[in-house]
Amino acid sequence: MERIVLGKANWLVEHGYEVTIITTEQNGRSAFFPMHSSIKQFDLGINYSDYNEASFIRKFFAFLVKRRLHKRKLRTFLNNIRADIVISTFGNEVGILPSINDGSKKVVEIHFSRFFRIQENRKGLFSLVDYFRSFCDKRNASKYARLVLLTNEDVKHWPKLKNIVVIPNFTSITNETSNQNTKRAISVGRLTYQKGYDMLIHIWAKVVQRHSDWHLDIFGSGEDEQKLQDLIMQYSIPKYVTIHKPSPMIVQEYLNSSIYLLSSRYEGFPLVLCESMNYGLAPVAMACKCGPKDLIIDGESGFLVDEGDIDTFVEKTCQLIENKSLRERMGRIAHQRMSQYFTPEVIMQQWTQLFDEL
């Protein structure tokens, strides 16, 4: 989310827009990705994450207090800057923003898909909260001038809303692509339940039984790191899988790989899949909700596998490993598809058209 928000913000200031980014829990940290010097950034200091590890009751009441503080600070800030358009990224401000009468048009963009809260698969009372908040999401989204979705697939999950527009994310297009010579598969993302790395490690354990000269590199951090490391040891494949910290030099990692593997249980728009296809990697992806089906033409620019179908995922991965010409052809088509439909110029023209309409 940070990468695409900053990418859009950088493009906008370079094209004459004034941009302010408002955060709630930056805690003095600088941005991970480059930020144009003309962008103004202000942190409200709400820090919802202070209570991430608290009990349900304590977290619930702390949330109510922080939400009240959030609304007061946000209202004051927006009334001071008098923006023309204010965009929510579907964070904790999503239910607050429409009631702030600062004269701006309100837009909400969701970086996931419709039922992302339920798909997190939390247990107990948190599960009930996720169902309730998912119900509220549609009501909140209806109050905005526009609801921006990332995929056409997700549109059907928001029935009867008349304010929907689909604008996917973009990737910076390059002519430099993988030469498909490296016996390496790659996956990039947070080490969480969502990304399905537990399934991917299971898949790779089966792959290396047939192709022990190939290696899988996973780049990411998150709460499941130790669990995944334990799983690698359980399958006795530490020689064949390595988990790396996130890298700001991820471009070079793409170029030094031949296959991209996406094992997510759910997505909004898998930007890393978009990026890897841009660098000419042949992808194998779970056809989860939502995103992969908008990016990959099955059998042409990669392979789509039914959700949770580990055996087919293994077979498609081995098919790419065993056939370099197939990898090269799919990688070439994948790169061409990104160059045609997902460039910053193509996508940001859709955003500026939306701004002009509003």
Results as ranks from 00 to 15, higher is better:
14 E>H: 10
17 Y>C: 11
34 P>F: 11
34 P>K: 12
42 F>K: 14
47 N>R: 09
50 D>R: 13
53 E>P: 00
53 E>G: 08
60 F>R: 09
76 T>E: 14
87 I>R: 09
88 S>H: 07
90 F>R: 01
93 E>T: 11
96 I>G: 04
106 K>C: 02
112 F>A: 09
113 S>R: 02
115 F>M: 04
120 E>F: 03
123 K>R: 14
140 N>Y: 14
142 S>I: 04
150 L>V: 07
164 I>P: 05
174 T>D: 09
181 N>M: 12
183 K>N: 14
184 R>C: 11
188 V>N: 08
198 D>L: 05
199 M>E: 09
201 I>P: 13
207 V>W: 10
211 H>L: 00
211 H>V: 00
218 I>H: 08
219 F>T: 03
219 F>W: 15
239 K>V: 00
241 V>T: 09
246 P>M: 03
247 S>C: 13
253 E>L: 05
257 S>L: 08
279 Y>P: 00
280 G>Q: 02
282 A>Y: 08
283 P>F: 06
291 G>I: 04
292 P>C: 10
296 I>F: 03
300 E>P: 01
302 G>I: 07
303 F>P: 02
303 F>G: 04
307 E>M: 13
309 D>E: 09
311 D>V: 08
331 G>T: 04
337 R>W: 07
338 M>I: 13
342 F>D: 02
342 F>Q: 08
342 F>T: 07
348 M>C: 15
350 Q>K: 15
350 Q>W: 01
354 L>G: 11
355 F>S: 13
355 F>N: 10
